[in-house]
């Protein structure tokens, strides 16, 4: 038991899971055990979206200091608007809609990296300014019109099997794929190497530029996937559907034990962190805390979790 624990506490992702379980227990203690399962189901449904974008953001952040994708919320909106508009509530047009939305996200990734590489704009500024362009495109293309998703997409996004959302199972497979990509492929290893030392990686003969390019593309595509499934889940795309995902995408990466300085990524931690953030909000809502207290508590608890998790890693 102690051996298992000492092995577990060495894992950077364990803290986000401990925090998640603690928050969940506190919530059901407050309600007297009522709704314990339903709360977890709801958390799984909503956390999946944060997990998908978190995976993309994780890859970007892992490529080293200064790398971050701030255009994720705008890309979610654009993909959602394009998908629902092209599909036009018709199951037969599902595939064209998905291709169109992912195509738009692909262009976003291309554009982001173009700004970063060709114009040598720092990623923070490049992705932030491109997000204005992306959102404006979404506004002028969609004109704020909420079109319902085709029934097949809505069903896919909302179906549950024994209380577990179908989407969560797909995202689990996606996460396993990402973990393998990171650990077992040349691309993944290169991402980690660049994050640890871009100069050394370049001198070792790795293709740094191509890898970074692929990473920004990947992040944009994952944001696009989120936009598509989110519009299916919530009954259509809206101009502000990406709101709230900017901080969340970075927070789940950091709380999940991925190094902000780059070079160290952690996939399981993103699950723990995304569930933790959702359950934290649920807990404070259940307690009936006022908005001010909620914001303070959210800040304090997140800082505490990061401090405990980070402090332990330095000891190692």
């Amino acid at each position: 038991m102690t051996a298992l624990w000492s092995k577990l506490r060495g894992q950077p992702w364990i803290w986000s899971f401990i925090a998640m379980i603690a928050v969940w227990l506190a919530t059901i203690a407050f309600t007297g055990g009522q709704g314990a399962g339903e709360i977890l189901t709801a958390a799984l449904s909503f956390a999946t979206f944060t997990i998908i974008i978190g995976l993309g953001q994780m890859m970007v952040i892992t490529t080293g200091p200064g790398n971050v994708d701030l255009s994720i919320p705008a890309t979610i909106t654009l993909a959602g608007v394009v998908a629902t508009k092209v599909m036009d509530t018709d199951n037969a047009r599902l595939l064209i809609g998905i291709v169109a939305a992912l195509g738009a996200s692909f262009v976003v990734g291309l554009f982001n990296y173009g700004l970063i590489r060709l114009l040598r704009i720092p990623p923070i500024i490049a992705t932030l300014s491109s997000s204005f362009l992306i959102l404006s495109t979404a506004i002028s293309y969609g004109r704020g019109i909420r079109i319902k998703p085709p029934p097949m997409l809505a069903d896919f996004a909302t179906t549950r099997i024994l209380g577990v959302p179908l989407l969560a199972i797909f995202v689990l497979l996606l996460s396993i794929g990402m973990a393998l990509l990171l650990k077992r492929t040349l691309y993944g290893r290169t991402v980690l190497a660049i994050g640890q030392n871009p100069r050394a990686a370049r001198l070792a003969g790795l293709n740094v530029d191509l890898t970074r390019f692929a990473t920004y593309l990947l992040s944009a595509l994952l944001a696009g996937v989120t936009g598509i499934v989110l519009s299916g889940f919530s009954g259509g795309a809206a101009l502000n559907m990406g709101e709230g995902f900017l901080l969340a995408s970075i927070a789940v990466v950091v709380i999940g034990g991925t190094s902000v300085a780059g070079g160290r990524a952690n996939v399981p931690g993103i699950w723990g962190a995304a569930l933790f953030i959702y359950l934290l909000d649920t807990m404070l809502n259940t307690f009936g805390a006022s908005a001010g207290i909620r914001l303070i508590m959210t800040g304090v608890i997140i800082i505490t979790v990061i401090t405990i998790a980070g402090g332990d890693r330095q000891q190692r």
Binding site: T27, F30, T31, Q34, G35, A36, G37, E38, I39, A42, A43, S45, F46, Y278, L279, D281, T282, N285, T286
Partner: peptide, 8 residues
């Protein structure tokens, strides 16, 4: 937000 608080 509603989905989160509803079970309780």
């Amino acid at each position: 937000a509603v989905a989160g608080i509803l079970p309780s």
